[in-house]
Design a protein around this nucleic acid. Structure first.
Lengths: 245, 245
DNA sequence: GGATTGAATATTGTATTCAAAAATCACTAA
DNA sequence: TTAGTGATTTTTGAATACAATATTCAATCC
């Protein structure tokens, strides 16, 4: 019997993926209005599947829909990033615990392969590669937890993505120099089957990033005592337009 | 300035809500195929907003989309319900902790108003009302936690809904007689601002339901040693058809 | 009688169309 | 100039149209 549901790929799925990566890769920037006509022409599809994809992204909070006005790429607040870390602290802690319990030898080997050739120097290229590896690592960790529902939530809900929405160091909150040993310790704890240690290390990892983020937020607040940002996009221009003279 | 995004209510939102409640209320039963033409006529809208709503429900896992075949009301496995409880154990534990920290006097009063006139007798009516109150209570608890992201996830991801997908006692895993004192203790812990106790009680509450569920699953497995259920709906009839002789 | 084939029918996925709302622009008056 | 106002253009939200695919069912063959 052939697998159902995988043979055909609906257009809206393709559009969804394409659009999502455009947002994640910052080709569409926070605040940008999504011009449906333009994008659908660009993708060579009608507005119907695009609309579908946009609704999906709205549910994921990657875009914001304003009725009768359109869709805008959403901007995450530091508070939201903080919440995402708080959630990841417990959720990935749980995943790490379960991973340590059910991990197989083959998976352990693959896990140990992460961050083997990490470049901890200052180079921008190195940071970028580390950030990518970081993402892959955490995704794999969740996968190892064997928690379908959790997997789904973290993936579809973009908790991971949100976490990288800090504006420095490719979205990393702390420098690889600091996080690399933590990652390695966590890897070892899971690979060698130590649930308690794994959970503790995973939680510590996020707790520390959270503290760092909090510290930055305090600093920022101290610098700009009261400058409330506009919460809704109003008369936002697309980033594609020519900058004024 | 007028509130953006709340004045207009898109059709697909209405259809979404309507459809969702039809599924939750079992007017559409697990396995049922969703006939788009029929439903859209019933709702008096075209298939476009219905399609949108269906895609949303697909993301929430309340319906399953099979390309070129249609949408089916999804059936949750006991395993999924178990996972939902496992997640709720930690997530609502966290919410209870935070609620106990930030709760206001007014909220505490409202919280103490839950389950005041609970009917713990055997009557079906009583059970139904208790189950509804149970849902409202847990939703309020999450709200009290003040965790926007968590709120969203639990709501949109139907973790709560999934939890009530057990086929006995209106979806309740344990009898009110057993859970009522737990609810009351939890309420008191939160209302009187005891974070540690609140988290402990919340987690215990779910852990016990989880154990009960596990026990039932074991029993069931013992009764029917090997009868693998079909994982995909195949030639599923709508529940509207006349039952055969 | 039961499996197989293929035309007829139904349903889906997507494009197109259209009315209503919002944005933009040109024009007038202070 | 600049604020306000009405006409024009864009854009959205939803209905309809249509081609591609799936399902059904009757006729045929073994």
């Amino acid at each position: 019997m052939r697998k159902l549901g995988t043979r055909h790929e609906n257009l809206d799925r393709k559009v969804y993926r394409e659009l999502k990566s455009m947002i994640v890769d910052r080709k569409l920037k926070p605040g940008d209005k999504i011009l449906q006509e333009k994008i659908s022409q660009e993708f060579g599809v009608s507005r119907t599947p695009l609309m579908c994809a946009l609704k999906k992204l709205e549910q994921e909070k990657l875009v914001q829909a304003i009725p009768r006005r359109g869709f805008y790429v959403r901007r995450f607040t530091k508070e939201e990033v903080l919440e995402a870390f708080e959630l990841r602290e417990i959720l990935e802690g749980l995943a790490a615990r379960r991973a340590a319990i059910i991990i197989t030898a083959i998976q352990a080997e693959r896990l140990r392969g992460f961050f083997t050739d990490a470049d901890v120097s200052e180079s921008g290229q190195g940071i970028k590669r580390y950030a990518d590896e970081d993402r892959r690592f955490h995704n794999f960790l969740i996968e190892l937890g064997g928690f379908d529902l959790l997997n789904d939530i973290l993936e579809n809900y973009n908790i991971i993505t949100v976490s990288y929405r800090v504006d420095v160091m490719e979205g990393l909150v702390r420098h690889p120099r600091e996080t690399l040993p933590e990652h390695r310790a966590l890897i070892e704890a899971i690979a060698s089957g130590k649930p308690d240690l794994a959970e503790k290390l995973a939680r510590q990892h996020f707790a520390r990033s959270r503290q760092q983020l909090l510290k930055e937020m305090e600093l920022e607040k101290a610098r700009r005592p009261s400058k409330p940002a506009a919460s809704h996009p109003r008369a936002v221009r697309t980033s594609q337009q020519e900058p004024g003279p």
